[in-house]
Amino acid sequence: MILTYHPGDSLAHRLDPRTKLFVQAAFALAIFAHTTPRGLAVFTVVTGGILAAGRVSPADPIRGFAPALPFLLIAPLVRTVSLSPLGIDPAAAVEPALASYRVLLVLVVSGVYLRTTSVRDSRAAVERLLPGRIGRFFGVGVALVFRFFPVLLADLRRVREASKARLGNERSLSERMRIIGTAGVRRAFARSDRLSLALRARCFAWNPTLPGLRLERRDYPVLVVGVAFVASVFV
């Protein structure tokens, strides 16, 4: 499942994208400063509130970031194994487990942003926050990544399904990785060529007419929450 924008009328949908970017960054900053059981318990409640504000199920961002989950699970397990002396130390898994859970909460909050913010709004927010050509460059990058990355993932999924239909799952792991990886790279380059041609055909411009952004009254309480996150780093 790929995380993409879904139109809606929730509070998160109606917030200015700059507000959401600020709160998301402040949340990540604060949670990295308070990676303790008590701190993570508080941020779990906050994450629940953010999910409710966007009317997003927690399962959606978790499924969307599924490729990263094995790494979050493996890190605590690896730390439990001690090589010198050889043995298992469960207490050593506590710190990496807290760190993995911290990253999971950040990913969930990011998933809410992706679900509730259109690509054009994200680009407009980046170009408003960063001046000049730098902002336009990063704005274009954000727009292309948001649109292009899900397409590449879908291509890889189709290649894997086609390989499986041809009994590719009976091949060795290295052979399956080679086939899927090679086909994925070929499709990525082909997509890039078509994207370049489409941009030229549509007279791609660095300064398109983007949606107007304006902070509304509902944005200010949310900005205060973001400021509180930043202030908590110094407490």
Results as ranks from 00 to 15, higher is better:
A183K: 06
G135V: 08
F138A: 07
T182S: 10
P131D: 10
F204P: 01
H6R: 14
L223M: 09
L114I: 15
A97C: 06
R18P: 09
L105N: 01
S172T: 12
R133S: 13
R178E: 12
N169F: 13
S10L: 13
L215V: 13
S118E: 08
A91V: 10
I134S: 10
A68Q: 07
V46P: 01
T80A: 15
Y220D: 06
I2K: 15
Y220H: 08
A12N: 01
P58F: 06
L153E: 07
A25C: 09
T47W: 04
P211H: 07
L173H: 07
M1G: 12
T47P: 05
R202C: 07
A52L: 15
E170L: 14
D9T: 12
L86C: 07
D121G: 01
A25D: 03
R202W: 08
F65G: 01
K20G: 05
R102H: 08
C203K: 10
K164N: 09
R191A: 14
F65P: 00
L69E: 08
E127V: 11
P67H: 10
T209V: 12
P150D: 12
H34R: 14
F149G: 03
K20M: 10
R176A: 03
L107G: 02
F234M: 11
R157M: 09
I180Q: 02
R157I: 10
L40R: 08
A183G: 11
R218F: 03
A52Q: 09
V78H: 10
I134T: 14
L213V: 07
V46I: 15
F65E: 01
Y220C: 03
A188W: 04
F234I: 06
I179G: 00
R186H: 15
V140N: 03
D193K: 14
L152Y: 02
R176W: 00
R157T: 14
F138S: 02
L104G: 00
V23T: 07
L29C: 05
R217C: 11
T35W: 12
L152A: 06
I62S: 04
L83E: 09
A93E: 01
V56M: 04
T44E: 08
G139P: 00
V42G: 05
G48Y: 10
A41W: 13
V112P: 00
V108R: 00
S122K: 02
T47Q: 05
G132Q: 11
H13V: 05
P17Q: 13
R158E: 13
G64F: 01
F234Q: 06
R187L: 15
A53M: 15
L130A: 07
Y5G: 05
L167D: 09
S57Y: 07
V46Y: 12
A28W: 03
G132E: 08
T44I: 09
R191P: 05
I74C: 02
I88K: 05
P131C: 07
P70G: 05
G49L: 13
Y5V: 08
R171G: 02
A91Y: 07
T117G: 03
D16P: 01
L144H: 11
K20L: 04
S10Q: 10
I134K: 03
V227Q: 02
D60Y: 06
R186G: 07
G226W: 00
R187A: 12
V78K: 06
S192A: 15
V42S: 04
F189G: 05
L167T: 11
S100H: 06
A30G: 06
R178T: 13
M1T: 13
L213G: 05
A66E: 04
T117L: 10
R79E: 14
R18S: 10
S174P: 01
T117W: 02
A97S: 15
V230R: 02
